[in-house]
Design a protein around this nucleic acid. Structure first.
Lengths: 244, 244
DNA sequence: CGGAAGATTGAAGAAACTCAATTTGTGTGG
DNA sequence: CCACACAAATTGAGTTTCTTCAATCTTCCG
Protein backbone atom coordinates (compact mmCIF):
# COMPACT_ATOMS: atom_id res chain seq x y z
CA UNK A 1 0.00 0.00 0.00
CA UNK A 2 1.30 3.38 -0.92
CA UNK A 3 -0.01 6.75 0.07
CA UNK A 4 -2.69 6.78 2.75
CA UNK A 5 -6.11 6.67 1.12
CA UNK A 6 -8.61 9.46 1.56
CA UNK A 7 -10.57 7.34 4.04
CA UNK A 8 -7.67 6.59 6.30
CA UNK A 9 -6.11 10.03 6.20
CA UNK A 10 -5.68 10.92 9.84
CA UNK A 11 -6.58 14.51 9.26
CA UNK A 12 -10.00 13.43 8.12
CA UNK A 13 -10.91 11.27 11.08
CA UNK A 14 -13.28 11.97 13.92
CA UNK A 15 -10.46 11.23 16.36
CA UNK A 16 -8.53 14.26 15.21
CA UNK A 17 -11.50 16.47 14.39
CA UNK A 18 -11.64 19.68 16.35
CA UNK A 19 -15.38 19.20 16.70
CA UNK A 20 -15.24 15.85 18.44
CA UNK A 21 -16.29 17.36 21.78
CA UNK A 22 -19.42 18.83 20.25
CA UNK A 23 -20.42 16.29 17.63
CA UNK A 24 -21.28 12.58 17.70
CA UNK A 25 -17.86 11.36 18.92
CA UNK A 26 -18.17 12.92 22.37
CA UNK A 27 -17.35 10.37 25.03
CA UNK A 28 -16.09 7.59 22.77
CA UNK A 29 -12.82 5.70 23.23
CA UNK A 30 -10.34 5.04 20.44
CA UNK A 31 -11.87 1.76 19.35
CA UNK A 32 -15.38 3.16 19.27
CA UNK A 33 -14.20 6.21 17.35
CA UNK A 34 -12.64 3.92 14.80
CA UNK A 35 -15.93 2.12 14.19
CA UNK A 36 -17.77 5.40 13.80
CA UNK A 37 -15.06 6.69 11.49
CA UNK A 38 -15.58 3.81 9.13
CA UNK A 39 -19.10 4.75 8.22
CA UNK A 40 -18.68 8.50 7.92
CA UNK A 41 -18.34 9.88 4.42
CA UNK A 42 -16.20 12.86 5.08
CA UNK A 43 -15.73 16.29 3.62
CA UNK A 44 -18.37 16.50 1.03
CA UNK A 45 -18.14 20.05 -0.27
CA UNK A 46 -21.21 22.20 -0.65
CA UNK A 47 -20.71 25.58 -2.25
CA UNK A 48 -22.49 28.74 -1.18
CA UNK A 49 -26.03 28.74 -2.49
CA UNK A 50 -26.13 24.98 -3.18
CA UNK A 51 -28.70 22.70 -1.61
CA UNK A 52 -27.47 19.71 0.39
CA UNK A 53 -30.97 18.24 0.44
CA UNK A 54 -34.50 19.34 -0.31
CA UNK A 55 -37.89 18.62 1.20
CA UNK A 56 -39.19 15.37 -0.24
CA UNK A 57 -35.74 13.87 -0.91
CA UNK A 58 -35.39 10.36 0.40
CA UNK A 59 -33.73 10.41 3.81
CA UNK A 60 -30.61 8.27 3.68
CA UNK A 61 -28.10 9.98 5.88
CA UNK A 62 -27.58 12.57 8.55
CA UNK A 63 -25.13 15.34 7.78
CA UNK A 64 -22.83 17.00 10.28
CA UNK A 65 -21.49 20.41 9.41
CA UNK A 66 -17.70 20.19 9.25
CA UNK A 67 -17.11 23.78 8.26
CA UNK A 68 -19.21 26.65 7.00
CA UNK A 69 -22.79 27.64 7.63
CA UNK A 70 -26.18 26.37 6.48
CA UNK A 71 -29.76 27.45 6.65
CA UNK A 72 -32.64 25.01 7.05
CA UNK A 73 -36.01 26.17 5.83
CA UNK A 74 -39.40 24.55 5.52
CA UNK A 75 -42.25 25.42 3.21
CA UNK A 76 -45.83 24.88 4.36
CA UNK A 77 -48.72 23.60 2.26
CA UNK A 78 -49.74 27.21 1.82
CA UNK A 79 -46.31 28.27 0.61
CA UNK A 80 -45.28 29.96 3.85
CA UNK A 81 -41.58 29.70 4.59
CA UNK A 82 -39.83 29.43 7.91
CA UNK A 83 -36.10 29.15 8.53
CA UNK A 84 -35.95 26.73 11.42
CA UNK A 85 -32.20 26.82 12.04
CA UNK A 86 -28.80 28.08 10.94
CA UNK A 87 -26.57 25.05 11.62
CA UNK A 88 -22.87 25.65 12.11
CA UNK A 89 -19.83 23.39 12.60
CA UNK A 90 -20.54 20.27 14.64
CA UNK A 91 -24.31 20.42 14.30
CA UNK A 92 -26.42 17.69 12.73
CA UNK A 93 -28.83 18.29 9.88
CA UNK A 94 -31.70 16.14 8.67
CA UNK A 95 -32.93 14.74 11.99
CA UNK A 96 -36.53 15.50 11.08
CA UNK A 97 -36.27 13.10 8.15
CA UNK A 98 -36.06 9.99 10.32
CA UNK A 99 -39.75 9.86 11.11
CA UNK A 100 -41.13 9.64 7.59
CA UNK A 101 -38.07 8.52 5.64
CA UNK A 102 -38.10 11.72 3.60
CA UNK A 103 -36.58 15.09 4.32
CA UNK A 104 -39.03 17.70 5.56
CA UNK A 105 -36.68 20.64 5.52
CA UNK A 106 -34.39 22.09 2.86
CA UNK A 107 -30.71 22.63 3.58
CA UNK A 108 -28.78 25.29 1.69
CA UNK A 109 -25.18 26.37 2.26
CA UNK A 110 -24.77 30.05 3.16
CA UNK A 111 -21.06 29.94 2.39
CA UNK A 112 -18.68 27.35 0.96
CA UNK A 113 -19.00 24.50 3.44
CA UNK A 114 -18.08 20.90 4.14
CA UNK A 115 -20.21 18.18 5.66
CA UNK A 116 -19.70 14.68 7.00
CA UNK A 117 -22.45 12.33 5.92
CA UNK A 118 -23.51 9.47 8.14
CA UNK A 119 -25.70 6.81 6.48
CA UNK A 120 -28.53 6.46 8.94
CA UNK A 121 -29.34 2.73 8.74
CA UNK A 122 -25.68 1.92 9.34
CA UNK A 123 -25.54 4.41 12.20
CA UNK A 124 -28.52 2.75 13.87
CA UNK A 125 -26.78 -0.59 13.51
CA UNK A 126 -23.68 0.77 15.19
CA UNK A 127 -25.67 2.37 18.01
CA UNK A 128 -26.77 -1.09 19.13
CA UNK A 129 -23.14 -2.09 19.58
CA UNK A 130 -21.91 1.12 21.15
CA UNK A 131 -24.03 2.23 24.10
CA UNK A 132 -22.01 5.38 24.56
CA UNK A 133 -22.51 6.39 20.96
CA UNK A 134 -26.20 5.61 21.33
CA UNK A 135 -26.46 7.83 24.36
CA UNK A 136 -24.57 10.66 22.69
CA UNK A 137 -26.85 10.41 19.67
CA UNK A 138 -29.86 10.68 21.95
CA UNK A 139 -28.30 13.64 23.67
CA UNK A 140 -27.89 15.39 20.33
CA UNK A 141 -31.49 14.67 19.36
CA UNK A 142 -32.59 15.99 22.72
CA UNK A 143 -30.46 19.11 22.32
CA UNK A 144 -32.06 19.73 18.97
CA UNK A 145 -35.46 19.65 20.66
CA UNK A 146 -34.24 21.94 23.42
CA UNK A 147 -32.91 24.51 20.99
CA UNK A 148 -36.13 24.33 18.98
CA UNK A 149 -38.00 25.14 22.19
CA UNK A 150 -35.65 28.02 22.73
CA UNK A 151 -36.57 29.47 19.37
CA UNK A 152 -40.26 29.00 20.17
CA UNK A 153 -39.71 31.09 23.28
CA UNK A 154 -38.09 33.80 21.16
CA UNK A 155 -40.84 33.68 18.53
CA UNK A 156 -43.70 33.54 21.00
CA UNK A 157 -42.73 35.94 23.74
CA UNK A 158 -40.17 38.50 22.62
CA UNK A 159 -40.37 41.94 21.05
CA UNK A 160 -38.43 42.70 17.87
CA UNK A 161 -35.54 44.22 19.79
CA UNK A 162 -35.22 41.25 22.12
CA UNK A 163 -35.51 38.79 19.25
CA UNK A 164 -32.53 40.31 17.48
CA UNK A 165 -30.54 40.55 20.71
CA UNK A 166 -31.31 36.91 21.52
CA UNK A 167 -30.33 35.89 18.00
CA UNK A 168 -26.93 37.54 18.29
CA UNK A 169 -26.34 36.08 21.74
CA UNK A 170 -27.29 32.63 20.50
CA UNK A 171 -24.78 32.84 17.66
CA UNK A 172 -22.12 34.22 19.96
CA UNK A 173 -22.64 31.47 22.51
CA UNK A 174 -22.52 28.74 19.89
CA UNK A 175 -19.33 30.15 18.40
CA UNK A 176 -17.88 30.40 21.89
CA UNK A 177 -18.57 26.70 22.52
CA UNK A 178 -16.42 26.02 19.43
CA UNK A 179 -13.58 28.17 20.73
CA UNK A 180 -14.16 30.65 17.93
CA UNK A 181 -13.81 34.35 18.58
CA UNK A 182 -17.32 34.97 19.81
CA UNK A 183 -17.67 38.73 19.97
CA UNK A 184 -17.00 39.52 16.34
CA UNK A 185 -19.57 37.65 14.31
CA UNK A 186 -19.62 37.37 10.56
CA UNK A 187 -23.27 36.92 9.66
CA UNK A 188 -23.49 34.86 6.49
CA UNK A 189 -27.25 35.30 6.25
CA UNK A 190 -29.18 38.29 4.94
CA UNK A 191 -31.42 40.55 7.01
CA UNK A 192 -34.31 38.90 5.24
CA UNK A 193 -33.16 35.46 6.42
CA UNK A 194 -32.73 36.72 9.97
CA UNK A 195 -36.18 38.27 9.83
CA UNK A 196 -37.77 35.13 8.50
CA UNK A 197 -36.10 33.10 11.25
CA UNK A 198 -37.32 35.49 13.94
CA UNK A 199 -40.80 36.19 12.64
CA UNK A 200 -39.95 39.76 11.57
CA UNK A 201 -39.67 41.70 8.35
CA UNK A 202 -36.23 42.62 7.09
CA UNK A 203 -36.82 46.34 7.67
CA UNK A 204 -37.63 45.66 11.31
CA UNK A 205 -34.46 43.62 11.70
CA UNK A 206 -32.48 46.48 10.22
CA UNK A 207 -34.09 48.98 12.56
CA UNK A 208 -33.29 46.83 15.57
CA UNK A 209 -29.65 46.47 14.51
CA UNK A 210 -29.55 50.25 14.31
CA UNK A 211 -31.16 50.59 17.72
CA UNK A 212 -28.72 48.17 19.35
CA UNK A 213 -25.88 50.05 17.67
CA UNK A 214 -27.18 53.44 18.82
CA UNK A 215 -27.47 52.06 22.35
CA UNK A 216 -23.82 51.04 22.23
CA UNK A 217 -24.42 47.30 22.55
CA UNK A 218 -23.09 46.30 19.17
CA UNK A 219 -21.02 47.71 16.35
CA UNK A 220 -21.99 46.92 12.78
CA UNK A 221 -19.81 46.91 9.72
CA UNK A 222 -21.75 45.44 6.84
CA UNK A 223 -22.38 41.81 7.66
CA UNK A 224 -19.79 41.84 10.39
CA UNK A 225 -21.28 42.52 13.81
CA UNK A 226 -19.32 43.07 16.98
CA UNK A 227 -20.84 42.64 20.40
CA UNK A 228 -19.41 45.57 22.38
CA UNK A 229 -21.19 44.84 25.61
CA UNK A 230 -22.07 41.20 26.04
CA UNK A 231 -23.35 41.63 29.57
CA UNK A 232 -25.66 44.48 28.65
CA UNK A 233 -27.00 42.51 25.71
CA UNK A 234 -27.60 39.55 28.01
CA UNK A 235 -29.24 41.83 30.54
CA UNK A 236 -31.50 43.19 27.85
CA UNK A 237 -32.72 39.68 27.06
CA UNK A 238 -33.16 38.78 30.71
CA UNK A 239 -34.76 41.96 31.98
CA UNK A 240 -36.43 43.11 28.78
CA UNK A 241 -34.83 46.56 28.93
CA UNK A 242 -31.55 48.28 29.66
CA UNK A 243 -30.67 49.08 33.31
CA UNK A 244 -33.80 47.75 34.98
CA UNK B 1 -50.10 -17.59 42.04
CA UNK B 2 -53.43 -16.02 42.75
CA UNK B 3 -55.00 -13.02 41.14
CA UNK B 4 -53.04 -11.50 38.31
CA UNK B 5 -50.73 -8.84 39.66
CA UNK B 6 -50.99 -5.24 38.57
CA UNK B 7 -47.95 -5.68 36.36
CA UNK B 8 -49.25 -8.70 34.49
CA UNK B 9 -52.81 -7.49 34.15
CA UNK B 10 -53.50 -7.80 30.46
CA UNK B 11 -55.54 -4.65 30.40
CA UNK B 12 -52.50 -2.70 31.44
CA UNK B 13 -50.10 -3.99 28.85
CA UNK B 14 -48.75 -2.31 25.76
CA UNK B 15 -49.96 -5.26 23.70
CA UNK B 16 -53.57 -4.46 24.45
CA UNK B 17 -53.22 -0.69 24.65
CA UNK B 18 -55.29 1.21 22.14
CA UNK B 19 -52.36 3.54 21.60
CA UNK B 20 -49.88 0.89 20.49
CA UNK B 21 -50.02 2.08 16.88
CA UNK B 22 -49.07 5.62 17.89
CA UNK B 23 -46.73 5.10 20.83
CA UNK B 24 -43.46 3.25 21.34
CA UNK B 25 -44.81 -0.27 20.62
CA UNK B 26 -45.46 0.39 16.93
CA UNK B 27 -43.96 -2.36 14.82
CA UNK B 28 -42.96 -4.71 17.64
CA UNK B 29 -43.77 -8.42 17.75
CA UNK B 30 -45.21 -10.20 20.81
CA UNK B 31 -41.87 -11.06 22.34
CA UNK B 32 -40.50 -7.56 21.90
CA UNK B 33 -43.66 -6.06 23.33
CA UNK B 34 -43.26 -8.27 26.35
CA UNK B 35 -39.75 -6.96 27.01
CA UNK B 36 -40.91 -3.39 26.69
CA UNK B 37 -43.87 -4.10 28.94
CA UNK B 38 -41.60 -5.22 31.72
CA UNK B 39 -39.96 -1.88 32.18
CA UNK B 40 -43.00 0.36 31.85
CA UNK B 41 -44.50 1.65 35.06
CA UNK B 42 -48.08 1.96 34.06
CA UNK B 43 -50.99 4.16 34.90
CA UNK B 44 -49.55 6.67 37.21
CA UNK B 45 -52.40 9.07 37.88
CA UNK B 46 -51.89 12.80 37.63
CA UNK B 47 -54.82 14.97 38.66
CA UNK B 48 -55.82 18.15 36.93
CA UNK B 49 -53.50 20.97 37.95
CA UNK B 50 -50.76 18.66 39.26
CA UNK B 51 -47.22 18.75 37.94
CA UNK B 52 -45.75 15.51 36.59
CA UNK B 53 -42.28 17.07 36.52
CA UNK B 54 -40.75 20.52 36.81
CA UNK B 55 -37.79 22.23 35.18
CA UNK B 56 -34.66 21.27 37.06
CA UNK B 57 -35.97 17.90 38.24
CA UNK B 58 -33.55 15.07 37.62
CA UNK B 59 -34.46 13.32 34.39
CA UNK B 60 -35.03 9.66 35.13
CA UNK B 61 -37.82 8.57 32.86
CA UNK B 62 -39.85 9.45 29.84
CA UNK B 63 -43.59 9.62 30.28
CA UNK B 64 -46.17 8.61 27.71
CA UNK B 65 -49.63 10.06 28.07
CA UNK B 66 -52.06 7.19 28.54
CA UNK B 67 -55.16 9.31 28.93
CA UNK B 68 -55.91 12.96 29.52
CA UNK B 69 -54.14 16.11 28.46
CA UNK B 70 -51.00 17.94 29.56
CA UNK B 71 -49.33 21.22 28.92
CA UNK B 72 -45.57 21.63 28.74
CA UNK B 73 -44.21 25.07 29.47
CA UNK B 74 -40.75 26.51 29.78
CA UNK B 75 -39.60 29.56 31.70
CA UNK B 76 -36.68 31.60 30.39
CA UNK B 77 -33.94 33.21 32.45
CA UNK B 78 -35.91 36.44 32.17
CA UNK B 79 -39.12 34.86 33.43
CA UNK B 80 -40.81 34.66 30.05
CA UNK B 81 -43.10 31.68 29.65
CA UNK B 82 -43.82 29.65 26.57
CA UNK B 83 -46.11 26.64 26.28
CA UNK B 84 -44.22 24.40 23.88
CA UNK B 85 -46.80 21.63 23.54
CA UNK B 86 -50.13 20.20 24.67
CA UNK B 87 -49.38 16.45 24.69
CA UNK B 88 -52.31 14.06 24.38
CA UNK B 89 -52.70 10.27 24.53
CA UNK B 90 -49.79 8.36 23.02
CA UNK B 91 -47.34 11.26 23.05
CA UNK B 92 -44.04 11.24 24.91
CA UNK B 93 -43.06 13.90 27.42
CA UNK B 94 -39.63 14.78 28.76
CA UNK B 95 -37.52 14.17 25.66
CA UNK B 96 -35.70 17.45 26.15
CA UNK B 97 -34.35 16.19 29.47
CA UNK B 98 -32.06 13.59 27.89
CA UNK B 99 -29.41 16.06 26.85
CA UNK B 100 -28.57 17.51 30.25
CA UNK B 101 -29.99 14.89 32.59
CA UNK B 102 -32.44 17.40 34.03
CA UNK B 103 -35.88 18.39 32.85
CA UNK B 104 -36.02 21.70 30.99
CA UNK B 105 -39.76 21.92 30.70
CA UNK B 106 -42.57 21.71 33.21
CA UNK B 107 -45.42 19.25 32.71
CA UNK B 108 -48.81 19.94 34.24
CA UNK B 109 -52.01 17.95 33.75
CA UNK B 110 -54.89 19.93 32.27
CA UNK B 111 -57.40 17.28 33.31
CA UNK B 112 -57.24 14.09 35.34
CA UNK B 113 -54.75 12.01 33.39
CA UNK B 114 -52.73 8.83 33.41
CA UNK B 115 -49.17 8.31 32.24
CA UNK B 116 -46.87 5.36 31.59
CA UNK B 117 -43.37 5.99 32.85
CA UNK B 118 -40.39 4.48 31.08
CA UNK B 119 -37.10 4.61 33.01
CA UNK B 120 -34.72 6.01 30.45
CA UNK B 121 -31.48 4.16 31.23
CA UNK B 122 -33.34 0.86 31.07
CA UNK B 123 -35.02 1.90 27.84
CA UNK B 124 -31.65 2.69 26.25
CA UNK B 125 -30.45 -0.75 27.33
CA UNK B 126 -33.42 -2.38 25.68
CA UNK B 127 -33.00 -0.37 22.47
CA UNK B 128 -29.65 -2.05 21.90
CA UNK B 129 -31.37 -5.44 21.92
CA UNK B 130 -34.41 -4.48 19.90
CA UNK B 131 -33.55 -2.71 16.65
CA UNK B 132 -37.19 -2.17 15.80
CA UNK B 133 -37.85 -0.51 19.13
CA UNK B 134 -34.74 1.59 18.63
CA UNK B 135 -35.94 2.71 15.24
CA UNK B 136 -39.42 3.53 16.52
CA UNK B 137 -37.92 5.54 19.35
CA UNK B 138 -35.89 7.51 16.85
CA UNK B 139 -38.98 8.03 14.74
CA UNK B 140 -40.77 9.47 17.75
CA UNK B 141 -37.88 11.80 18.55
CA UNK B 142 -37.83 12.89 14.93
CA UNK B 143 -41.59 13.46 14.96
CA UNK B 144 -41.21 15.63 18.01
CA UNK B 145 -38.71 17.76 16.10
CA UNK B 146 -40.99 17.91 13.07
CA UNK B 147 -43.95 19.07 15.12
CA UNK B 148 -41.79 21.64 16.87
CA UNK B 149 -40.85 22.99 13.45
CA UNK B 150 -44.51 23.08 12.60
CA UNK B 151 -45.19 25.31 15.57
CA UNK B 152 -42.27 27.54 14.59
CA UNK B 153 -43.93 27.98 11.21
CA UNK B 154 -47.17 28.98 12.93
CA UNK B 155 -45.42 31.36 15.33
CA UNK B 156 -43.18 32.92 12.72
CA UNK B 157 -45.37 33.33 9.68
CA UNK B 158 -49.08 33.35 10.53
CA UNK B 159 -51.56 36.05 11.47
CA UNK B 160 -53.68 35.72 14.60
CA UNK B 161 -56.62 34.27 12.67
CA UNK B 162 -54.48 31.66 10.92
CA UNK B 163 -52.71 30.75 14.13
CA UNK B 164 -55.99 29.90 15.84
CA UNK B 165 -57.28 28.04 12.77
CA UNK B 166 -54.04 26.05 12.55
CA UNK B 167 -54.24 25.28 16.26
CA UNK B 168 -57.74 23.84 15.94
CA UNK B 169 -56.80 21.83 12.85
CA UNK B 170 -53.74 20.46 14.59
CA UNK B 171 -55.83 19.27 17.55
CA UNK B 172 -58.46 17.84 15.24
CA UNK B 173 -55.92 15.94 13.17
CA UNK B 174 -54.20 14.52 16.23
CA UNK B 175 -57.52 13.38 17.70
CA UNK B 176 -58.43 11.88 14.34
CA UNK B 177 -55.21 9.82 14.32
CA UNK B 178 -56.41 8.36 17.61
CA UNK B 179 -59.82 7.47 16.20
CA UNK B 180 -61.44 10.02 18.46
CA UNK B 181 -64.32 12.11 17.21
CA UNK B 182 -62.28 14.86 15.63
CA UNK B 183 -64.76 17.59 14.77
CA UNK B 184 -66.07 18.26 18.27
CA UNK B 185 -63.12 19.23 20.38
CA UNK B 186 -63.16 19.73 24.09
CA UNK B 187 -60.42 22.25 24.80
CA UNK B 188 -59.01 21.59 28.26
CA UNK B 189 -56.79 24.66 28.12
CA UNK B 190 -57.76 28.27 28.78
CA UNK B 191 -57.74 31.05 26.19
CA UNK B 192 -54.69 32.37 27.97
CA UNK B 193 -52.88 29.06 27.49
CA UNK B 194 -53.81 28.96 23.81
CA UNK B 195 -52.60 32.53 23.42
CA UNK B 196 -49.33 31.83 25.16
CA UNK B 197 -48.78 28.79 22.95
CA UNK B 198 -49.48 30.80 19.78
CA UNK B 199 -47.74 34.04 20.69
CA UNK B 200 -51.00 35.95 21.19
CA UNK B 201 -52.87 37.60 24.03
CA UNK B 202 -55.97 35.91 25.37
CA UNK B 203 -58.22 38.70 24.10
CA UNK B 204 -56.90 38.23 20.59
CA UNK B 205 -57.54 34.49 20.79
CA UNK B 206 -61.08 35.19 21.92
CA UNK B 207 -61.62 37.62 19.05
CA UNK B 208 -60.36 35.08 16.53
CA UNK B 209 -62.66 32.39 17.91
CA UNK B 210 -65.51 34.85 17.47
CA UNK B 211 -64.40 35.66 13.93
CA UNK B 212 -64.17 32.01 12.92
CA UNK B 213 -67.60 31.47 14.47
CA UNK B 214 -69.11 34.47 12.64
CA UNK B 215 -67.63 33.15 9.39
CA UNK B 216 -69.38 29.83 9.96
CA UNK B 217 -66.23 27.75 10.24
CA UNK B 218 -66.65 26.70 13.84
CA UNK B 219 -69.32 26.60 16.53
CA UNK B 220 -68.34 27.39 20.10
CA UNK B 221 -70.05 26.31 23.27
CA UNK B 222 -67.85 27.28 26.19
CA UNK B 223 -64.72 25.19 25.97
CA UNK B 224 -66.31 22.84 23.48
CA UNK B 225 -65.54 23.79 19.91
CA UNK B 226 -67.04 22.18 16.83
CA UNK B 227 -65.42 22.41 13.42
CA UNK B 228 -68.38 22.97 11.10
CA UNK B 229 -66.41 23.24 7.90
CA UNK B 230 -63.13 21.39 8.07
CA UNK B 231 -62.29 21.99 4.41
CA UNK B 232 -62.86 25.71 4.65
CA UNK B 233 -60.74 25.89 7.80
CA UNK B 234 -57.99 23.98 6.00
CA UNK B 235 -58.34 26.25 3.01
CA UNK B 236 -58.01 29.27 5.25
CA UNK B 237 -54.69 27.96 6.53
CA UNK B 238 -53.44 27.06 3.07
CA UNK B 239 -54.58 30.09 1.15
CA UNK B 240 -54.54 32.63 3.95
CA UNK B 241 -58.09 33.74 3.35
CA UNK B 242 -61.55 32.39 2.59
CA UNK B 243 -62.48 31.65 -1.07
CA UNK B 244 -59.23 32.66 -2.69
C1' DC C 1 -77.57 30.23 44.45
C1' DG C 2 -73.62 33.16 44.75
C1' DG C 3 -69.00 34.23 43.96
C1' DA C 4 -64.81 33.85 41.42
C1' DA C 5 -62.46 32.77 37.44
C1' DG C 6 -62.66 32.72 32.63
C1' DA C 7 -64.38 34.61 28.28
C1' DT C 8 -66.12 38.19 25.35
C1' DT C 9 -66.40 42.76 23.48
C1' DG C 10 -65.15 47.73 22.89
C1' DA C 11 -62.05 51.70 22.44
C1' DA C 12 -57.55 53.62 22.46
C1' DG C 13 -52.67 52.90 22.04
C1' DA C 14 -48.28 50.66 20.66
C1' DA C 15 -45.63 47.63 17.86
C1' DA C 16 -44.50 45.95 13.67
C1' DC C 17 -45.60 46.07 8.71
C1' DT C 18 -45.95 48.12 4.00
C1' DC C 19 -44.51 51.12 0.65
C1' DA C 20 -41.08 54.11 -0.97
C1' DA C 21 -36.76 56.60 -1.34
C1' DT C 22 -31.91 56.57 -0.40
C1' DT C 23 -27.54 54.70 0.85
C1' DT C 24 -24.24 51.17 1.12
C1' DG C 25 -22.04 47.10 -0.34
C1' DT C 26 -20.54 43.64 -3.91
C1' DG C 27 -19.06 41.76 -7.93
C1' DT C 28 -17.98 42.36 -12.86
C1' DG C 29 -16.15 44.10 -16.95
C1' DG C 30 -13.80 47.81 -19.14
C1' DC D 1 -7.97 49.58 -10.55
C1' DC D 2 -11.93 52.03 -11.22
C1' DA D 3 -16.60 52.58 -12.78
C1' DC D 4 -20.76 50.66 -13.22
C1' DA D 5 -24.77 47.89 -12.20
C1' DC D 6 -27.27 45.18 -9.14
C1' DA D 7 -28.37 43.49 -4.76
C1' DA D 8 -28.74 44.36 0.05
C1' DA D 9 -29.37 47.41 3.83
C1' DT D 10 -31.00 51.56 5.93
C1' DT D 11 -34.25 55.08 6.97
C1' DG D 12 -38.76 57.54 6.79
C1' DA D 13 -43.91 58.04 6.68
C1' DG D 14 -48.29 56.12 6.93
C1' DT D 15 -51.15 52.00 7.78
C1' DT D 16 -52.48 47.59 9.76
C1' DT D 17 -52.48 44.33 13.32
C1' DC D 18 -52.24 43.17 17.70
C1' DT D 19 -52.12 44.70 22.44
C1' DT D 20 -53.67 47.14 26.54
C1' DC D 21 -57.02 48.66 29.53
C1' DA D 22 -61.64 48.40 30.92
C1' DA D 23 -66.33 46.94 31.23
C1' DT D 24 -69.58 43.33 30.89
C1' DC D 25 -71.09 38.60 30.40
C1' DT D 26 -70.76 33.61 31.04
C1' DT D 27 -69.43 29.40 33.09
C1' DC D 28 -68.06 26.58 36.64
C1' DC D 29 -67.89 25.10 41.54
C1' DG D 30 -68.66 25.12 46.12
Amino acid sequence: MGVASFETNLKNRCSSCSLREICLPLGLDAEELDKLDRLVKRRRRVFAGQHLFRAGDSFQALAAVRSGFFKIYEVSAGGLEQITAFPMAGELMGLDGISSGAHIGNAIALEDSEVCEIPFPRLEGLLSDLPRLQHQFHRLLSSAIASDHNLMMVLGTMTAELKVAAFLLNLSDRLHARAEPALVIHLPMSREDIGNHLGLKLETVSRMFSKLRDDGLIRTEGRKTEICNYEALKGLCVRGSLRA
